[in-house]
Design a binder for these strands. Structure first.
Lengths: 108, 108
DNA sequence: TTTAAATTTGCATCCTTGCGCAACTATGCT
DNA sequence: AGCATAGTTGCGCAAGGATGCAAATTTAAA
């Protein structure tokens, strides 16, 4: 044994959590997820009560965090979820937390 | 089908992500996880280069988010991971993201 | 009781972040 | 070319958050 911290170091970067730590950004993500298709900034704007420029900024932030992907189409930009990396991160984090609970934190 | 957004509404609360969106707090969590046992504030302090009072504040924040549990023991307070809820949240989030990717976002 | 140690809290400061507004860029339409 | 539409960016402001220091609180020890 003695294998406790194998994955703990991986989640020391707060970037993705910072991207998720805002109500408006979560609403934006949920909007895209519920729509089930790539959406333009103007379409997404309706899900949250803020100015279009703010929505644009939030989407850029989500893109930098790897949570969405932007695709330019004429003068529109369509954003779609890019969830694979995030899913892997979340599952890995859950697994390492679980193994910590089972392998370390219980045995005194 | 048409079942797309079954769990999307669940993660509209940014509280837990806010708690995780700070490098120092992640270091604190990792410190407790790696130690594999409840730790006092003074012990945890060594993992991050900030003042003890700041560590205390971060731990209180993590406790309010449900990420750790505090147990008073004499004049010390021992903090331990309270990971079950977080694991469930992370897995649920991963699942709902995955189903969104499979059921909606692909089919254009 | 007096003293010391562990933790929390009040206060001031500094830095970050979300926001609206206006200007700018890029693209399509007539 | 001229104009309209979609989106991004610069700027300033206000709110929030992280930090250190010092005081307060709680509890153990002498």
């Amino acid at each position: 044994m003695k294998r406790r911290s194998q994955a703990v170091e991986l989640w020391l970067q707060p970037e993705i959590f910072k991207a998720l730590a805002d109500e408006t950004r979560l609403a934006v993500l949920a909007r895209i997820a519920v729509a089930g298709r790539p959406m333009t900034v103007s379409e997404i704007k309706d899900c949250c009560g803020i100015h279009l420029s703010g929505v644009s900024r939030h989407l850029i932030q989500l893109r930098r965090a790897g949570l969405v992907h932007a695709e330019k189409d004429g003068r529109e930009v369509r954003y779609r979820l890019q969830a694979d990396d995030v899913i892997a991160l979340l599952r890995g984090l859950a697994d390492s937390l679980e193994s910590c609970g089972k392998n370390c934190c219980v045995e005194e």
